[in-house]
C-alpha cells in the first residue's frame, strides 16, 4: 500500500498484535497522517469552531439573523483547517483526485457514529454541485463523503450555477441568494453533508429550504471547520 498523499510505500512495523490480528490497512503514512489536526478540546457547540465560549460570536449573529430560530441545529466538523488539509482538499476537489477522499473514509464513519447515531430515522443530504460544476469535476465531494456513511442518502436538492463560494468575501456570501431548489418534501431529520464549513451560509441556505419543505430538524456534518 502506498500513501495516498505522498505516494511513499507504507511499511507496517511487525509486532505481536498485528501478527495475531491483521491490522486494518491504512491509506495515509504516519507523517502525512500526523499533519491532519482534529478539533480537540473546547469548541463552539453550534459550529464546531475552537472556542472557549459555548456559542461563538458568529453563531450568536446567526441566531439573531433568524430571530432566535436558527435553521441549522448545529454543525459538527472533524478537522481543523490548516495548510496541509487545505492542500489535500484543493487537490481532491479542484484537481479532481477522487481517490484522496478515501483518506477520510474511516474517520468520517467513526465520528459520525459518535455524534449522530442517536438520531433515529435520519437521512443524509449531501450538498449538491451545479450541473456545470459537476460536469467539470466529474464527482461531487459531498456525495462521496455521504456515501461513506451507513445511513440512507437522499438527493433532493439541486443547485443553480453561480460563482464559486470560495471566490467571495464573507459579506458577499452571507447576503447571497439561495442557490438551491428542492424537488420533494422530506419529513425526517436531515443531516447535511459537505466538505467544509466556512461561514455556514451554504449549509443554512440548504437547511432553510429543507425546513420549509417539512423537515423537522436539520443538522450538518462537515469534514473541516474553515
Amino acid at each position: 500500500m502506498n500513501c495516498l498523499w505522498c505516494h511513499e510505500a507504507i511499511i507496517l512495523d511487525v509486532n505481536w498484535l498485528n501478527i495475531l490480528i491483521p491490522s486494518v490497512p491504512r491509506n495515509l503514512c504516519d507523517t502525512c497522517a500526523s499533519n491532519l489536526e482534529k478539533i480537540n478540546g473546547k469548541r463552539c457547540r453550534k459550529c464546531s469552531r475552537i472556542a472557549n465560549i459555548e456559542v461563538c460570536e458568529d453563531c450568536t449573529k446567526w441566531e439573531k439573523y433568524y430571530q432566535g430560530y436558527d435553521v441549522l441545529e448545529f454543525n459538527y466538523s472533524i478537522f481543523q483547517y490548516n495548510e496541509h488539509i487545505k492542500k489535500i482538499i484543493a487537490k481532491w476537489k479542484y484537481r479532481g483526485d477522487y481517490e484522496l477522499g478515501n483518506i477520510f473514509n474511516e474517520t468520517f464513519k467513526q465520528e459520525f457514529v459518535k455524534k449522530f447515531s442517536h438520531l433515529k430515522n435520519a437521512v443524509v443530504v449531501p450538498i449538491p454541485l451545479s450541473r456545470e460544476r459537476l460536469e467539470e469535476r466529474c464527482f461531487n465531494q459531498a456525495e462521496m463523503l455521504a456515501d461513506f456513511l451507513q445511513i440512507p442518502k437522499v438527493d433532493i436538492l439541486t443547485r443553480v450555477h453561480g460563482e464559486k463560494q470560495s471566490k467571495k468575501t464573507r459579506q458577499e456570501r452571507i447576503i447571497s441568494k439561495n442557490p438551491f431548489s428542492i424537488q420533494q418534501n422530506l419529513n425526517k431529520y436531515a443531516i447535511l453533508v459537505d466538505d467544509i464549513y466556512t461561514t455556514g451560509t451554504t449549509l443554512r441556505h440548504a437547511a432553510k429550504l429543507l425546513q420549509m419543505n417539512g423537515c423537522p430538524r436539520v443538522f450538518s456534518y462537515t469534514l473541516v471547520r474553515g
Binding site: M1, N2, H7, G96, D97, Y98, E99, C138
Partner: peptide, 11 residues
C-alpha cells in the same frame, strides 16, 4: 498501478 485511481465519473 498505485498511481491510477478509479472515479465514478458523472460525465
Amino acid at each position: 498501478s498505485h498511481l491510477f485511481g478509479k472515479i465514478p465519473c458523472a460525465g
